[in-house]
Design a protein around this nucleic acid. Structure first.
Lengths: 202, 202, 202, 202
DNA sequence: GATGAATGAGGGTTCATTCAT
DNA sequence: GATGAATGAACCCTCATTCAT
């Protein structure tokens, strides 16, 4: 039942299926992909997929879980004495990098389905967004309390920044040329914008 | 052939169908909605829809077109002598308001399908995003040239701001409580953020 | 909506489908029959069946309904002054004849599924068995009250007789040679048995 | 090859599987039950079942065989000098009791499948019905020959009585309340009916 | 003999689309 | 133009059966 060898085989097969699903989803999208497509890509029978995943929708959730684990694994809470500039850059750079390594086409598919699939959306909010934003809020609030930063509404501002990142990823995955070309310069540009604004200061 | 009365009838029927489609899409999503659902909601026969729209996908594009017209109609190029603060606020407020009036559930559906539907995506970029960003870029570049604003990369910055708006709308439609509660304070908060940043200046 | 021509067309199509279903069920049985079998036999497309019947199970219920209507249509409550012999013979003859005219193979299939399908079973009891037994009970009870018949428990006896008929039909449909050969003599033989018993009286 | 120990183990395992199959069939019916259901209920692997039974259908036949053995084991040919009343009561009581002890839900399932499964049907006729009816026929014929009973057609009458029993069992398993409530009074009521009929004798 | 993962044929059902009326 | 019955391709999923370990 908890035979570790068995578990490993099961996990390997699950991964094999998820990898195939990810590849086909990325290429064709979620709805146009059939179970047969995935089975063929994985080199297994249709029915085998159902030995490991309840239904087609669970494949997407499985992919989401893989992404989540990758993302969460990389998250380190910021040290309390980190200076604002470093913090902002890290806050921006991290998700942009985390995803860049991955398959952008796939992310687009998952995001699209997330907007439309309740379970996926809830998982995103509870398991990715909140755990990511909470420490950022805490850090910024502390900085504001110490008079080092001026933020009228920390919670809302953090939301806005997170949304900016999400929006940028979205735009990237949707093929915006400007963003694709200059993706690497984004963290610095944004950090500057966020810290100092665009208004000339005298 | 171009009998104006005929045209008006045709347009009225198209609108009737699109309104029904919009209502049902907003409630059930694009894929789960059937042509029959729409026909019933519009009080017409299934086949009638195909007299006005080539296929189910064109209904979504039709809805998109309605949105686009609404959005574009409201856009006025900023006067060259507008001060930065007013400009930024207008730039933010406009899409946030434009959409708030509308059906957020529907926007979520359209966005989701846009990420996955090539034609929709291209239309969005060519017919909404570019026409919106171009004047903003021109204005900001001019302000930078005049030394009134400090922006390292105007094009990228405009993209980032647009993405932020898109991301905020996305998060809103996905049911983020913080955003929903404080949606009205967003323009001011963001304008402040963008203009002056969060760093204490002295 | 209640256009009589429409209704006639719909009923004709329903009948066409039910006839095809009956033919194929009778030949292959309920479970081994596929919707495709029925559609082919009816000369229509698979999907058309679903325009008239919710699912495969409803085809069986539709067939059951046809049978029920035939059976009930033939039922006439016995006149109160009918003599016992005539009554018993009629009580026996009626169902045996009603079914003989029909397709015995089909009856076997319906009976078999009835034993296993709750809805069918309830319909049988409520819509066929009870309406048939109630007048028989009333008649016999009256005869007993008048001292013309000796029946210890009318209700149970009526049940037993009905069960005998059901059992005989079952046996017949299952291919019992003795029954098949002498089916026509059954009513007389049974009437004699029921009225006078097998014990020598003296 | 015919190692008696081996045989015993095999038989024990077969019984284990059949018991599980019987339990699940009784609960869910034959078609809705999966091999996995049975394997789980028996606490063994799916494949093991196929070491003992050729296929799913053979499980039903195995259950049928168990029933048959129980039934046949209890049958004792009536002594030639048994009086008619005792004979009839025994003839009735025996199957009603035999089955009552058993699982009625299971009987319903087996009967239903018997109507639809050729092999099962043939087995029933050859191995249960005929062996049961033959001695009854012989006894009754002898009684008729001796002038002790009046039966026009012994063979047909025996069939009718057997069918009545079968029909009663069927009705019982299908949930007829009257029968269920008064099941124990049936043998006496029926014996009276069969021996003396319902007609007033003077 | 026991296991249970793998198989893959097959089935019920859906639904976008067509077209005769 | 409007209708809505007919179509049939396509899909998800089930599950009896097999067989390598």
């Amino acid at each position: 039942m908890t035979d570790p060898i068995q578990q490993q085989l099961i996990n390997a097969r699950k991964k094999q299926i998820l990898d195939a699903a990810a590849a086909v989803f990325a290429e064709k999208g979620f709805h146009p992909t059939t179970i047969r497509d995935i089975a063929k890509h994985a080199g297994i029978a249709d029915g085998t997929i159902y030995n490991y995943f309840e239904n087609k929708s669970m494949l997407l959730i499985g992919i989401f879980e893989q992404m989540r684990e990758t993302i969460i694994a990389q998250q380190v809470p910021p040290p309390a004495d980190l200076d604002a500039k470093s913090f902002v850059q890290a806050f921006l750079q991290h998700p942009l990098n985390a995803l860049k390594a991955d398959n952008f086409a796939l992310i687009r598919i998952v995001l699209a389905e997330m907007m439309v699939n309740d379970e996926l959306r809830i998982r995103y909010h509870q398991q990715i967004l909140e755990p990511t934003l909470a420490p950022a809020e805490a850090y910024l609030q502390e900085q504001v309390n110490q008079g080092k930063l001026h933020i009228a509404d920390v919670k809302l501002t953090v939301r806005a920044l997170a949304s900016m990142i999400m929006g940028l990823i979205l735009e990237y995955t949707m093929g915006d040329d400007t963003l694709i070309d200059q993706w690497d310069q984004l963290p610095a540009t944004l950090a500057n914008l966020i810290l100092y604004g665009i208004k000339d200061k005298k």
